[in-house]
């Protein structure tokens, strides 16, 4: 199966005064797994629906390979879609659901049946082909939806928060399975989620969206460690945005004049675990919480009282239990984990 690159070229969409997509441009390579990540209302689903053909952009172009699909009818796009609520057809059994796109393509019945059964085996649903949709569990429905979306060998797959209805354990299993399926098929995939962990685990690249714009597009690691905006930093995890002047270099050199982003888990309480070029933050302990795998400390920094979250792995935090609120604490972070935010903050 040949998969195709996707080009999104300055696409905008407004509903009345509400701007859902604000001049969005994005190139997705053939075979790539790209995640659109953002809070609700960020425009990620609108962008997905524009690619699917259910939302017509006010301006801009959508290309599949080098073909302009901006105004092409949804049924002519050859794009497999997995919907958030699966949108299975309850009046058909599992096999008929999966064979439906093949029947539409006028494939002979015997061949369609064979292909549908092969695809069901691929998503580990052998033996359930005659079941009614109503008799399936959430996870099984999810697999039927996947099978139905790939059975006709689409060149692109779109997934709209496909795992949000599943419980946590099943969700994690399915994350790996969807990624494995993508790797097997090599199909260009655009995946929408608001769950940053899911995006980090599954994606080749992540496009973080907010208010109809792409804030940053990069590999999961760079998005996490090197966010380009405050929004991305805070959306991706426990981020501390530290104003200039509150940070001291351990070696006494002049500290950076930029606003810094330091993740909560980058901190250590032991100076020896951080290099000489690391930084130190001094403050008073406001609160502490034991979270199983780690301790979360809240420090009020000297000089302004800005609060900083410090996350210490339980294995390295033998002393945390004895810390009392009001006590003075110094937190250290290695230079590699201190990221100057390119964006200036007012």
């Amino acid at each position: 199966m040949e998969s195709l690159p996707i080009t999104i070229d300055s696409v905008s969409k407004s509903y009345g005064t509400y701007v859902a997509l604000d001049d969005v441009s994005l190139d997705i390579q053939a075979g790539e797994f790209l995640t659109l990540l953002g809070p609700s209302g960020s425009g990620k689903t609108t962008l997905l629906m524009a690619l699917a053909g259910f939302v017509r952009p006010d301006s801009g172009k959508l290309l599949l390979g080098d073909r302009d699909i901006t105004r092409l009818a949804p049924n002519k796009r050859d794009i497999g879609i997995v919907f958030q609520n699966y949108a299975l057809f309850p009046h058909m059994n599992v096999l008929a659901n999966v064979a439906y796109p093949l029947a539409l393509r006028k494939m002979p019945k015997a061949e369609a049946r064979r292909r549908a059964l092969d695809t069901l085996a691929r998503v580990k649903l052998e033996g359930l082909s005659e079941r009614n949709i109503a008799a399936l569990s959430g996870g099984q429905r999810q697999r039927v939806a996947l099978a139905r979306a790939i059975v006709f060998e689409p060149r692109v797959m779109l997934m709209d928060e496909p795992l949000s209805a599943l419980d946590k354990n099943l969700r994690e299993t399915m994350q790996y399975e969807i990624r494995r399926l993508h790797d097997d098929l090599g199909i260009t995939t655009i995946y929408v989620t608001h769950d940053q962990r899911e995006a980090l685990i599954m994606s080749d690249r992540i496009a973080v969206m907010n208010s109809g714009r792409i804030q940053q597009i990069d590999t999961p690691q760079r998005i996490y460690d090197r966010p380009s905006t405050r929004f991305v930093a805070e959306f991706m995890g426990e981020a501390n945005i530290v104003a200039p002047g509150l940070v001291r270099r351990i070696d006494g050199a002049d500290a950076s004049r930029a606003t810094l982003m330091i993740r909560a888990e980058s901190f250590h309480l032991d100076e020896k675990l951080v290099g000489r070029d690391g930084i130190a933050l001094e403050g008073t302990l406001r609160a502490k919480a034991f979270r199983g795998e780690n301790w979360l400390l809240t420090l009020a920094l000297d000089g302004g009282g800005q609060e900083v979250l410090v996350c210490i792995p339980a294995a390295l935090a033998s002393g945390c239990g004895e810390l009392a609120t009001g006590q003075r604490v110094t937190a250290y972070a290695p230079a590699a984990k201190v990221h100057p935010l390119p964006e200036t903050i007012a």
Partner: peptide, 24 residues
């Protein structure tokens, strides 16, 4: 969403109405 699913799977309007809406 079922109609959108049918459309994405290759059904034109008539097939989506006839095959998905009408039977249900």
């Amino acid at each position: 969403n079922q109609v959108q699913a049918a459309r994405s799977l290759g059904a034109n309007w008539a097939r989506a109405i006839g095959g998905i809406i009408v039977p249900q």
